[in-house]
């Protein structure tokens, strides 16, 4: 009987300890790290000798809360002149955390790649080449040539950022590779800009 009392006392002590230590932590605010809130396409005209001329045209797509149900992103229309050649650079930021994601993409150039699709390419209104430093196929910097004769003034361009793909997959070296999914990886960005051609 004495033993029993001792045992039950130990058990009780253990239980009290267990139950007392069992309390959830207070929740903390978590800043979503990988969220992209703003994608800016910057165009600057290139003259016949491939020198940058004129002012920079910026067109932005933004979703201030990142991915949040019920909110849709606002996307500005890209407005460019027919028959001209532009250098396009892409800036990607997380405004919630004040992060420049462009730099991260550049650092991980081997695992990222932009693809450019949509009617502007299907109807040959645009032609595009990668122009990133070091000759990597990345797409943060490209050369876009707008055709001088387009059947319509209103069109669209789809911008896709793939992460973790096999960059040496046959066809993946083209910036307009439509079967990018076959190269593996996943999509980080997929948005369509309206395009107005003057």
């Amino acid at each position: 009987m004495k033993n029993l009392r001792k045992v039950s006392l130990y058990l009780l002590a253990l239980m009290v300890f267990g139950f007392a230590s069992c309390k959830s932590e207070d929740p903390t605010q978590e800043n979503d790290g990988e969220v992209i809130t703003d994608v800016t396409l910057k165009f600057q005209e290139l003259n016949a000798s491939n020198a940058l001329v004129g002012s920079v045209l910026s067109f932005k797509a933004s979703d201030p809360q990142g991915i949040e149900v019920g909110k849709t992103p606002t996307i500005q229309s890209i407005s460019l002149a027919k028959g001209k050649k532009y250098q396009m650079t892409i800036e990607v930021t997380n405004a919630i955390k004040g992060e420049d994601i462009t730099q991260e993409i550049l650092t991980e150039a081997a695992a990222h790649q932009f693809f450019f699709l949509g009617q502007v390419f299907d109807s040959s209104f645009f032609s595009i080449q990668y122009a990133d430093a070091g000759g990597v196929a990345l797409g943060l910097k490209t050369i876009v040539t707008v055709s001088s004769s387009t059947g319509t003034n209103n069109s669209n361009m789809r911008v896709v950022l793939r992460h973790d793909l096999n960059k040496s997959f046959p066809g993946a070296s083209s910036p307009t590779f439509a079967n990018f999914a076959q190269a593996g990886g996943e999509t980080d960005l997929d948005l369509t800009f309206p395009v107005i051609l003057n």
């Binding site: 959830s24 978590e30 979503d32």
Partner: peptide, 21 residues
């Protein structure tokens, strides 16, 4: 049964389920 669930901070993702008791 007593249960306490906590999301450990630092994931950089809004938790899928809350902390709870």
């Amino acid at each position: 049964i007593q249960q306490a669930n906590s999301n450990l901070p630092g994931t950089g993702v809004t938790p899928l389920i809350p902390n709870y008791d």
